[in-house]
């Protein structure tokens, strides 16, 4: 009698696992960048991104992004003009150049850019102090020409955002890291993943 119940045990464990799978989804799946729109360097990629506001209402934005280039950064824009970058030993700074084509009424604040190597190591383009130079934080809008905020109000005194423009984001990495692709996203799970060169 007891042996028969042992035979049922694996089935029961599988059922228990399946019925609790929704818990996994609730915990981390929505926060992962799993809804990928892929493309290659130089190729315009259409991205549709959804987000939920504080009231729980769902919104979406559409834009076209093109990865123009990823190159070692030699200078960054400082308060009084370009400043030379001289990263410490073992450190590299990459300039990620992106072109965005987007309507001027689309809010773009709070974007994220990262650089990945072919093993999936990911370095966020978040700026910071490198070799005594302040590397800018990432913004996906031209300085002084931002679009509307998420509450619909444009910043005071700014000119309208152009329909097409380029921005740079700077990622600090270990010197040994070789960039393979770039990610651009606002809120998970939507992300644009753009490969470098002919990869």
């Amino acid at each position: 009698m007891s042996r028969r119940w042992l035979l049922v045990l694996p089935v029961a464990l599988v059922l228990a696992g399946l019925t609790s799978a929704s818990r996994l989804q609730m915990f981390w799946w929505p926060d992962e960048l799993h809804d990928r729109t892929t493309g290659r360097q130089g190729e315009p990629v259409r991205l549709r991104d959804q987000w939920v506001d504080e009231a729980g209402d769902e919104h979406h934005r559409e834009l076209t992004v093109t990865l123009v280039d990823v190159r070692p950064a030699t200078t960054v824009e400082g308060f009084s003009g370009p400043e030379r970058l001289d990263p410490p030993t073992g450190t590299a700074v990459w300039e990620v150049r992106l072109r965005l084509d987007v309507g001027e009424d689309v809010p773009l604040g709070g974007c994220h850019v990262s650089v990945l190597d072919d093993e999936g190591h990911e370095a966020d383009a978040v700026g910071g102090s490198v070799g005594g130079v302040q590397v800018p934080t990432t913004a996906c809008e031209p300085e002084g020409r931002t679009g509307p905020g998420y509450d619909g109000s444009p910043p005071d005194g700014d000119a309208p955002r152009p329909a097409s423009y380029e921005v740079s984001a700077y990622a600090v990495t270990a010197a040994s890291m070789v960039p393979d692709r770039v990610r651009l996203w606002w809120e998970a799970p939507d992300v644009a993943e753009l490969s470098l060169g002919s990869r």
Partner: peptide, 9 residues
């Protein structure tokens, strides 16, 4: 503590 990228102290 700055959030450093992979492999960089």
């Amino acid at each position: 503590c700055t959030a450093g990228p992979p492999g960089l102290p």
